[in-house]
């Protein structure tokens, strides 16, 4: 068990290294540090000296992967890649290209992201489970059919429509919530209502259909027939047997998402002007702030790997057959 998780942790290192190599290659393939300096400095202060100074300030004066000027191991270590990778692994994200402290920014913006993402996950799970369970119970009936139609229709609507429609209907027409924005503390409640409702609705159709399929798959299994042969009532068969078995894939599917909740939802945050990590990332991308993007990609990959490990752990807890070796 412990061995398994230690091995998974060690396996994360080459993955994160790979991710770093990829992001570096992507950026430096087409964007030279000179380009970045020009972009950050703006047109007015643009002198060759200023560019050089900016590069030195942000560490971009060194070669990316291979320092031919050095000898021995330092050819590899005295490089931009090595330096920033080791710092990433120490969770020291340094300064953004625009000069702000990334660690502080992330710490500050994580809160709003979670305030939106956690309710979305929980409310969404509750709604989808209730709906799909009810409909699996009624499988084959007219209600099941129309629920299926509704789900497909809900899946076919663009997420943008949910957002725009929600803002227009709930905020502009009914004045139930502000169109966008964010406040700290309890005041945030007013602001999170709309994004949560919209995000839950946008993903509901797909989850309900998936969960329903899982429930029906379990219903077709032999142990369900056995449970009925024992004389259990429909409700006991459903909750005592089917639900518990179907919950395994559902829970593990949810668990893998939990770590990435920290990153927030890019589009939702951008639309509702929520100062979370999602909008942080988008702002950084639009400003071509490589340091921030690099940090976010690293963080995202790390959380993904953590999600995989959590999934394994949840399997271990939920399913007695699973042993990790």
């Amino acid at each position: 068990m412990m061995g398994y998780f230690v091995r998974r942790l060690l396996y994360a290192i080459p993955i994160l290294l790979g991710v770093n190599v990829l992001t570096f290659a992507l950026f430096f393939l087409v964007n030279t540090p000179d380009d970045m300096a020009r972009m950050q400095l703006g047109e007015r202060r643009l002198t060759p000296a200023a560019i050089e100074q900016w590069k030195v300030d942000h560490g971009y004066h060194r070669p990316v992967f291979w320092n031919a000027a050095q000898t021995g191991v330092t050819q590899l270590t005295d490089t931009l890649f090595f330096d920033s990778s080791t710092r990433l692994f120490r969770f020291d994200f340094g300064k953004s290209d625009a000069g702000r402290d990334i660690n502080a920014d992330i710490a500050e913006r994580m809160g709003p992201s979670l305030v939106i993402a956690v309710p979305v996950l929980l409310v969404g799970l509750a709604c989808a489970l209730t709906w799909s369970l009810a409909i699996a119970w009624l499988a084959g009936t007219r209600l099941d059919f129309w629920s299926g139609v509704l789900c497909v229709a809900m899946m076919s609507i663009s997420g943008l429509f949910y957002i725009i429609g929600g803002q227009w209907l709930l905020a502009k027409l009914w004045h139930l919530a502000p169109i966008s924005g964010y406040a700290d503390g309890l005041a945030s409640l007013r602001f999170i209502l709309l994004p949560v409702v919209v995000s839950v609705l946008a993903s509901l159709g797909g989850s309900v259909r998936w969960y329903r399929a899982l429930f029906l798959e379990e219903l077709g299994k032999d142990y369900v027939r056995m449970a009925r042969a024992k004389g259990l009532s429909d409700a006991r068969v459903m909750f005592g047997h089917v639900f518990r078995n179907a919950l395994i894939p559902i829970l593990t599917g949810v668990v893998v998402l939990i770590p990435s909740l920290f990153l927030g939802a890019l589009i939702t945050e951008a639309f509702f002007a929520i100062p979370g990590l999602g909008s942080y990332t988008i702002e950084a991308l639009q400003a071509q702030d490589f340091a921030v993007v690099r940090a976010m990609v690293f963080l995202g990959s790390l959380l993904y790997v953590a999600g995989l490990m959590l999934t394994d752990l949840s399997y271990l807890i939920a399913d007695p057959r699973v042993r990790l070796e």
Partner: peptide, 8 residues
């Protein structure tokens, strides 16, 4: 594929 999938 794990590496690629791990990048958001």
């Amino acid at each position: 594929y794990t590496t690629l999938a791990s990048i958001p």
